[in-house]
């Protein structure tokens, strides 16, 4: 219990120490961490590798942008509509994708999200195609102006901490235990009378919901949305963050999100070829560090303290 509190306190103190650039970077990391944590629910705890999670981030962001620009609703009305709409979509996609498990599930999630990606490019009357939707504004909860980096960071941090806490509650609940059961021993679980499919479907929807939350934060941050947010590369970045940090751990997606975004940020200062670097990092991590950074470091730490004691 101590470590999470310490991390939250440190994260809350960050704006006192860092400049605007780093505060914005921290906001992005928190948003990306929520996205990665929602992938981790499926991959780490459900054993379901999804390559289409950008669909929920992207659709929530597009819904929010569309309702704001074209129907000119207020943010307090848009946010629940976008979340409900995206969660319903997750329910439908779950019905399709969970007809399979393993690689079939992966290909179905990928195909579903790629279809949305292609649609975002081509359905110009709704999405403005390759131009993306611009001219958005951040919400002003309690009349606080969030265009400055610091208030927005605290807004993102509060929601991000709440989201990750809710996901941690989810996996540590009895339901979470049954979910891990379906990951490790699906046949036994179903022999014990659990409805494996239903457990997976509920998790799929829950993960879709938090993916949508990250999408809202994402579109608030950028005030802009482009089809690239729905792309395979975006889903892959989220998956990479989970795997790099360590799937099936609570800290993994957060650490992984920080690693991926810091790398992306640092690399973009020197080279233009982020996608190529992303590819190399992917190959490197999968081949050399398949368990991820958090379990890897934990193992090294335990070995060190074991050799001391």
């Amino acid at each position: 219990m101590k470590t999470p509190l310490a991390v939250i306190v440190l994260a809350a103190l960050l704006p006192l120490l860092a400049g605007e650039y780093y505060i914005n970077l921290a906001s992005q990391i928190v948003i990306f961490a929520v996205f990665a944590a929602s992938i981790n629910l499926l991959l780490g705890y459900g054993g379901l590798a999804t390559l289409g999670h950008a669909a929920y981030l992207g659709v929530a962001a597009y819904l929010s942008a569309f309702l704001y620009l074209k129907l000119q609703l207020a943010h307090w009305a848009i946010a629940p509509l976008a979340l409900i709409g995206t969660t319903l979509m997750a329910g439908v996609f779950g019905l399709v994708a969970l007809r399979a498990t393993g690689l079939g599930f992966l290909m179905l999630t990928l195909a579903l999200s790629q279809v949305l990606w292609g649609t975002a490019y081509r359905w110009v009357s709704v999405t403005d195609g390759d131009n993306g939707l611009r001219g958005l504004a951040r919400p002003m909860p309690f009349g606080i102006n969030m265009n400055e980096a610091m208030p927005f960071y605290y807004f993102v941090l509060v929601i991000g901490v709440f989201a990750i806490w809710m996901m941690a509650r989810f996996v540590s609940s009895p339901f979470g235990a049954t979910l891990r059961g379906t990951r490790d021993q699906p046949r036994r679980m179903s022999a014990l009378g659990y409805d494996v499919w239903l457990i997976r479907w509920i998790t799929f929807i829950y993960a879709g919901f938090w993916g949508a939350v990250s999408g809202l934060l994402f579109v608030y941050y950028h005030k802009y949305i482009h089809p690239v947010s729905l792309s395979l590369a975006n889903s892959a970045e989220g998956l990479l963050a989970v795997i790099a940090g360590g799937s099936g751990t609570l800290a993994g997606p957060i650490v992984g999100a920080a690693i991926v975004l810091l790398l992306k940020n640092w690399a973009s200062a020197y080279i233009e070829r982020w996608n190529m670097l992303l590819g190399f990092v992917f190959v490197f991590i999968v081949v050399l560090m398949p368990e991820g950074v958090v379990p890897g470091v934990k193992r090294l730490w335990q070995r060190r303290s074991a050799s001391r004691g």
């Binding site: 992303l278 590819g279 999968v286």
Partner: peptide, 12 residues
């Protein structure tokens, strides 16, 4: 892992 490697290689 193999799927992810092929994905990484496709980005490269």
């Amino acid at each position: 892992g193999q799927v992810l490697v092929t994905l990484g290689v496709s980005f490269i």
